[in-house]
């Protein structure tokens, strides 16, 4: 991937987000939440599993990844691990958006490189809070 793709969004207008979930309904729900939560978003990309996400990350600038865990082909844990090992992707924050899970599993995901965990179902405001916490208010929200 190019150096620019992993460098964040300086000089760009609006967030580039990647939603990774094997459920098309959930991807649309997350898209809807993104649209409702007041984030300044330029584009939302979609992937159906971790492998598709890596393909998307290789071809698009992405500022933030919202990823499910329980997916076929490549699950969210492996996606987070691969991104953490790739110098070009390690700086891109990953928020896990998944069903309720054990504290041990959440801690393991955060240790692996995920930046936050959002339990399904979630309200748009909760998504906004997580993104603002990670990217800062100037980078994420209409004022």
């Amino acid at each position: 991937m190019s150096a620019e793709q992993g460098q964040g969004r300086e000089g760009k207008m609006g967030l580039q987000m990647l939603v990774v979930d094997d459920s098309p309904v959930t991807r649309k729900m997350v898209r809807r939440a993104i649209g409702l939560c007041g984030l300044e978003v330029a584009e939302v990309h979609e992937a159906g599993n971790g492998a598709e996400a890596l393909t998307q990350l290789a071809s698009h600038r992405v500022d933030l990844v919202l990823a499910d865990i329980n997916m076929p082909v490549m699950n969210g844990v492996e996606l987070v691990e691969r991104m953490a090992r790739d110098p070009g992707l390690a700086a891109i924050p990953v928020v896990i958006v998944a069903t309720p899970m054990s504290e041990e599993r959440v801690e393991r995901l955060l240790d692996t490189g995920a930046r936050a965990y959002l339990a399904k179902p979630f309200r748009p405001e909760a998504l906004r809070d997580v993104v603002v916490q990670i990217l800062g208010p100037k980078g994420a929200v209409h004022v």
Partner: peptide
Amino acid sequence: EILNVIGGAFITRYFGTQVPS
């Protein structure tokens, strides 16, 4: 997807959040 969320809610509520699931 609804059953997926139900599954997560059930196992954390019944078995707790301190055990691997």
